[in-house]
Amino acid sequence: MRKEKLYLRYLLTLISIVILFLIIWWADGHLDNYYKRVLTVSGIYIILGVSLNLINGITGIFSLGHAGFMGLGAYTAALLTMSVAQKQMTFFIEPLISPLDKISIPFLPALLIGGVVAAFFGLLIGIPTLRLGGDYLAIATLGFGEIIVVVFNNTINITNGALGLKGLSPYTNLWWTYGWAVFTVFFITRLVNSSYGRALKAIRENEVAAQAMGVNIFYHKVLAFIVGAFFAGIGGGLLAHLLTTINPVAFNFFLTFNILIVIVIGGLGSITGSVIAGFFFPILLEWLRFIEAPMDVFGIHIPGIPGMRMVVFSLLLLIVMIFYQRGLMGRSEFSWDFIIKRFVKD
């Protein structure tokens, strides 16, 4: 690799980020709220998809607890940003425990603390469960996700129980979301391309061989798990401040399933794939609303069938898994070299 090519790649990356933010600047000023909201959800799904892919696709440990980590991040961030007055209004069954009832901090630190709390629970959950093999790990993390929902429902003096939290300030916008999305992709790409990333991939390919080569399996698995949990927490916090209301059921297994669809369709193990699938998943979900609306086909009136979209998506997932396991990208990644080679002859 010649040095000027390296600079060229940095330059191209920088230019595309600038272009991305120019587009966001344009979108922020010109699109109506509906489109902006869909695009924001897309950005959040990029964060969630890439972080789950680090755990499931790149390290090959099958975790089904992503929604649980999102819930932890969402509740933590929400409890920290809510104003004192709003908290008193929301917690009318049982008062919020001290000192949470007196705290109200800005969005960014709240998000970060939410991510750290999620990561801490990732460590707590990871240490016992990551010693388990494939299927058992999947069930144990699924169990963790369900336990979190039950705990949210029952710790009324912290989470307000099944009523959830409402009246959060709508901090999340395109800038916050895509800022975090770019950071997530940058961070996880750098991680994957480092020696840590090579160790993670080695664990995915063959655990015994990786161990024989001196990779500390357990340490690297926990590392991937914590990083994934951190970004899930951030994604949860962003989602909470987009929806402005959260309740425990919002973080049940259905949410994990959506993210699973994203990473499977994008290609398990491809960050590029997760970005593409994560971006288009919410858009497709919105666009597919027409199949739930009443329509006339060849003169026959079909009444709207609510819930049909998720049938289509689960079928899509099945078809991808059975006939085209690679997904969109397989394990390939987007790279500048590929494009440069097209234009520049050595």
Partner: peptide
């Protein structure tokens, strides 16, 4: 892992 994801897919379907 593919079989497991498919099983989850069937369940959701």
């Amino acid at each position: 892992i593919s079989a497991l994801i498919t099983a989850i897919g069937v369940s959701f379907f």
